[in-house]
Structure formats: C-alpha cells, structure tokens
Design a protein around this nucleic acid. Sequence first.
DNA 1: CGGTGTATTGAAATTAGTCAACAGAGGTGG
DNA 2: CCACCTCTGTTGACTAATTTCAATACACCG
Lengths: 234, 234
Amino acid sequence: MPASVTACDTCCAGDLCLFAEGLTVGAGEWERIVQPHGEVRAGRRLYQRNSPLKYIYLVCSGCIKTQRDTPDGSLVISGFHLPGDLLGIDAINNDRYTADAVATVDSEVCRFDYAQLLTHCASHPKIAAKMMTHVTRYAARKDEELAWTMGLNAQRRVLRFFLRLHDSICLQGRSDRETVRIPMRKQDIAHYLRMTPETFSRNLAALRRDGLLELQKNHFVFPDRGLAHAITQI
Amino acid sequence: MPASVTACDTCCAGDLCLFAEGLTVGAGEWERIVQPHGEVRAGRRLYQRNSPLKYIYLVCSGCIKTQRDTPDGSLVISGFHLPGDLLGIDAINNDRYTADAVATVDSEVCRFDYAQLLTHCASHPKIAAKMMTHVTRYAARKDEELAWTMGLNAQRRVLRFFLRLHDSICLQGRSDRETVRIPMRKQDIAHYLRMTPETFSRNLAALRRDGLLELQKNHFVFPDRGLAHAITQI
DNA sequence: CGGTGTATTGAAATTAGTCAACAGAGGTGG
DNA sequence: CCACCTCTGTTGACTAATTTCAATACACCG
C-alpha cells in the first residue's frame, strides 16, 4: 500500500476520487495507474494543448486553469478546475488535449494513466460508472455555463461567477459566511467570463457600490447571499 | 429479430448507433431496451424539462432542438441535434431532463430505456465504451461551442453556424457543393447563437453582400468554403 | 526605492439590442 | 382562385451595453 494512502483519507476530492470505489490497492495495480498527490506550483503547466492524451488528473487542492491562445494574440480561459474536478476530459474524444492546463496557485493533483484506466474500466463497471459521472458532470457544467454565461449581462456574469466560486469552495468544508480567497487573477476571470478586464473591473466596482459583494484584496464574501442568488437567475 | 432491422441497415447514425457494437439481438434483449425509429412530427415535443430521465434518444433523421424558456419570457435554445446525435445526455447527471426537446422538422428517433441500458453497460464494456464516446463527444462539442460562440462577433457566429451545419449534413453522404436545406427556423438559430432575430437577419444579409454565403429560401451553399472557414478561426 | 506586472478609471468608438413598421410565405375559408 | 389572416423574417432609426484606447494607481519583489 502506497505511502500516500493516508493523504487520500483527508483529500477533499472524497467520493469523486476514482479510488473511492472499486479499485483494489496492491499487486501493483495502484502503482501502474496512479501517481498520487503531485505538486504543481503556481504558473507551472500541467500539460500542453495538442499534445497526445496520456494522463488525466484529479485536482486535490488549489486551482488549475485551462486556456488556449488564439491566433490574434488574445487568450481564452475555458475553465477553472477546483478540488474534486477531473482534468483532461476534453482530450478523451480526440486523444489530444484541447487546451493548456496551468496552475493559478500552488496545487496538488493525482495523475492517472488514461490507457491503463480504460483497461480497468472494462473489467470494473464501478470505475467505469464513476468515470461516466465525471464526464456527464463535466458536460452538464458546460451546458450550464453556456446557458448562463451568455444569457446574462456583464454585471450578472460577474456576480454569478463569485457565487459559484463561493459554492465550490464552501463544499470543501468552509462556512457560508467565511470570507474566501480568490484563487486566480482578475484578468483570468475576465477572460473566462468573456469580457475585457476593464469591463470586469467596472462591474465589480458596481457590485460593491450596490452592496451585493464585499471584496478586499483577494478575499470576498456575500453580505446577502439570497439576494445575489436571486439576481443571477435571469 | 425486429422488423426494423432493415431500417437500421440504412440508418445514417451508422457507427454511432449503440447497436452497431456488442448488443445481441434476440431473447427479448433488443425489445426491452429499444424502440427503434419512432416518428416525431415537426413541432412535437419529445420530452419535457424537469421530467425524470426515462429514455435517451438517438436521432436518425431530421432535427431535434433542446430549449428552455426563462422566467422573463424569452427562450434559450441549447442545441440542435442532428442524425447520429444522442439526446438526453444532459439528464444523466441529475436524473431529470434540463431542457425541452422539440422536433424542428419531421424526424425519426430511436428510443432507449436508460435504466436497462445502464444495466447492460455493466456487462457489455463495448456498449459502455460507445456511451462514453457519445458523452465525451457531447462534452467536447459544448466545450467548442463555449470557446467559439462567445469569442466571435455576431457575424462570425452566424457564418460559423452555417459552416458547422454544412459539415454535419455533408457527413450524411451529401456532396460538398450541394445546396442544403436549413432544418430549423431562423429565429431559433438566432436564439441559439445568443442574438436577436434582427441582429441575425442583418448579419445574414451582410454575409450575402460579402459573397461569403449563398442563400435562397431555406437552402444555402458556400461559394468559397475555405475562405469562410478561415474567417471563423478568430 | 525603482521596476514590472496587474488593476482601476475616464472618454470615445463600436457593437448589439430595442422599438416599430413593413414585407413575404403559407394556410384557411369564401 | 382570390382575399384575408397569421406567423416569420427583414429593414430602419434610436438606445444601451461593451470594447477600445489612454492614463493613472496599486502591489509585489528584487
């Protein structure tokens, strides 16, 4: 049994980890498939767009952004991946990663050998089912992003972003009223929300003026979560 | 063996059909899981948002749109599903359909009992793998939509829509230079592309003026496919 | 204490949305 | 077969939102 098993006990991925169900440890099975809890420093790249799919990753702590730069020199952030999220799903369909993956803060990830994992899925339906859960969750999230990100004006997109970020982080055991740290740069958020950093900044200022969001440095909290939630529901 | 097996031989879903791989016909297996090639008339609803997931559908011919109306009375089209597409994937994650599914033209769909299919997946890895292919393809498409639909201005979104529609339809055996029919209303396209029907109409007119798209009635063709493709690459 | 990258703010320019009028297609009944 | 109606799509003038360009402030790090 690997040394990291105790680390897994406290990993916030919890139920979402592929090991939580069905995969027996020992006989080299574990070691062939997974390299647990690797560190990724802020700014380091985990994988590169267009490189062949070799591993998928489970985020254990921190935050990984996926991005691609466009021919005209601008940058598109396709997602922020927080603890519990599987990374590399976008590559499954075409065997190549569709974006660069870069840590926005110091992070930890577990690395799974995809080919080995697939072999395993054929004989372990529970792991296959868990994979399916991850992928459909991923699809559902993209669906939702597509539905909301474009349906709302800039100000509501900003508000919604912080609401969802708050949700995600509070799922990891933090209280609802606690102020939480923003684990990425503001311009990354702006690009993710498909607006210029200027527009983002202006709307953030407006949200503070209206008392919908309290923010200082890189920390924020919602004075009235219910109200904020209501506003982003179109 | 069901009467519809001959119909399947000519179905354009082809390789994407869940039966193309691994599921043996006979012993009631087929009949329990699938109702093949049902008709859906234009405007009829296949399933309703928020109703519990019971079936998933494979589009064999025609076009099914998925949509939801917002509290403020407007309509959001989340996707158009053409032959070969699996319908209802969005429901897998939360056991309820997240949108209404409505046929935009007379269509044909095969209906799969989801619970039975899942059971089957546990014992038939090949079907599980095919399901995974569908789901990851769905996710990849959403990813792409999210990346492009928002990154481009209105005119390029319109152009890109027709390019992709053209691609999809030409995959079904039609020639590249053939004029193809638009299988949905223009206002549905507009909503799908997140713009008003007016904006859509204006940009369509602009594309015709610029000679990028030939369009008459409900049929279109690209005078210069390469150019159009280059323009939509940001 | 500067220097670099990041964030904010202001004014002008561009894009898309809104409101309103009109045109065309398709269907129904006389 | 035509008149009428309705739904859909087009076009124009105006308004609102967002981007762009430019200048300035702030924070982190050597």
